[in-house]
Computed example of a mutant assay.
Amino acid sequence: MITVLEILVVILSLVLIGVVVAQKSKTQGMGAGFGGGAEDLFGSRARGMDAFLSKLTIILSILFAVLTLILGRLMNTY
Rank of each mutant, 00 (worst) to 15 (best):
residue 14 L to K: 05
residue 19 V to M: 08
residue 21 V to F: 00
residue 15 V to N: 08
residue 20 V to D: 09
residue 26 K to R: 12
residue 23 Q to S: 09
residue 3 T to G: 09
residue 34 F to H: 14
residue 14 L to G: 03
residue 10 V to A: 14
residue 21 V to N: 06
residue 11 I to H: 05
residue 25 S to D: 10
residue 35 G to A: 01
residue 21 V to D: 01
residue 16 L to T: 06
residue 31 G to K: 15
residue 22 A to D: 02
residue 25 S to E: 14
residue 6 E to S: 05
residue 22 A to H: 07
residue 7 I to V: 06
residue 5 L to N: 10
residue 35 G to Q: 04
residue 28 Q to R: 04
residue 23 Q to P: 13
residue 3 T to E: 12
residue 33 G to Q: 04
residue 25 S to Y: 11
residue 6 E to H: 05
residue 5 L to G: 00
residue 30 M to F: 10
residue 27 T to V: 12
residue 30 M to V: 09
residue 28 Q to I: 09
residue 19 V to E: 11
residue 21 V to E: 04
residue 14 L to A: 09
residue 22 A to Y: 02
residue 7 I to W: 08
residue 24 K to M: 14
residue 11 I to A: 09
residue 15 V to H: 02
residue 5 L to H: 03
residue 3 T to H: 13
residue 16 L to Y: 09
residue 21 V to Y: 04
residue 14 L to H: 06
residue 16 L to W: 08
residue 31 G to P: 14
residue 12 L to P: 00
residue 25 S to L: 14
residue 7 I to Q: 00
residue 32 A to G: 06
residue 19 V to D: 10
residue 14 L to N: 08
residue 3 T to S: 12
residue 8 L to D: 05
residue 34 F to C: 06
residue 10 V to C: 01
residue 26 K to M: 13
residue 18 G to A: 00
residue 12 L to G: 01
residue 15 V to S: 04
residue 23 Q to A: 00
residue 15 V to C: 01
residue 17 I to R: 01
residue 6 E to Y: 00
residue 27 T to D: 15
residue 29 G to K: 02
residue 27 T to P: 07
residue 12 L to N: 04
residue 20 V to Y: 10
residue 20 V to A: 00
residue 34 F to K: 11
residue 6 E to P: 03
